[in-house]
Amino acid sequence: MTIPHPVRVGVLVIAATSFYTYVGQMVPQKEVQPPQETVIRADLTTADMVKVGREIMDGKGLCFTCHTIGKTGALRFPDLDGVDVRAQTRVAGLSDIEYFAQTIYEPNAFVVPGFNPGMPVINKPPIGLNDQEILCVIAYLQTLGGTPTVTLQTSHHYYTPAGAPGAAPAAASAQGVAPGATPAAPGATPAASGATPAAPGATPAAPGATPAKPTGAPGAPPAAPAAVPAAVAPAKGTTR
């Protein structure tokens, strides 16, 4: 019996589409859900922020679409292993926090040599992390080669927490000194490693003050009363 050509053609069409459907089932199957909104509680500790930061980088932040941790070879985007060590000295005048903030809010201000510009602005859509989420991301990034010191009260060039003591308008904070911030006691130790020196115009710490500690560090003893306002003020890079 001869099978009519139209039937053969029909079988061919069905067989070809079935084959391609089969190929489609053979590749990894992953359903990508829209990113969940992260709830950032006001009382998060730095350790909590590190965890949240990692989750954000995995999900809503889409960081690991491009970046890797611990990968070598011909990379298309910078690997993040030990990034905090590099961040402390990457750009003269910027602490690791300030550097991380710059790469997130203003990614094309500095591009790592050997790589093309490609980092999107993270605080705007489509990624659109908010300021608190970005602080969490910075906290996680600090763990990659350093010690996390960021708190939800940490301010930087691009953000000043509304409830932070001595919170100032963005323009003022950009100058590095919060209006009304009391000068730190003389003899206060510099801020934690990697911190950028206070912005020009920042008053030296008061003599005899207890060494200032990163305000967000778990278990950190309170700094000398005179030094505290300086430590929490949104002075550029001096809050840790």
């Binding site: 391609y20 459907t21 190929v23 489609g24 089932q25 590749v27 990894p28 199957q29 992953k30 359903e31 990508v32 859900q33 829209p34």
Partner: peptide, 11 residues
């Protein structure tokens, strides 16, 4: 709003 699997898309 989710992105379906490639298997579903090919179907």
């Amino acid at each position: 709003a989710f992105t379906p699997t490639l298997g579903f898309a090919t179907q």
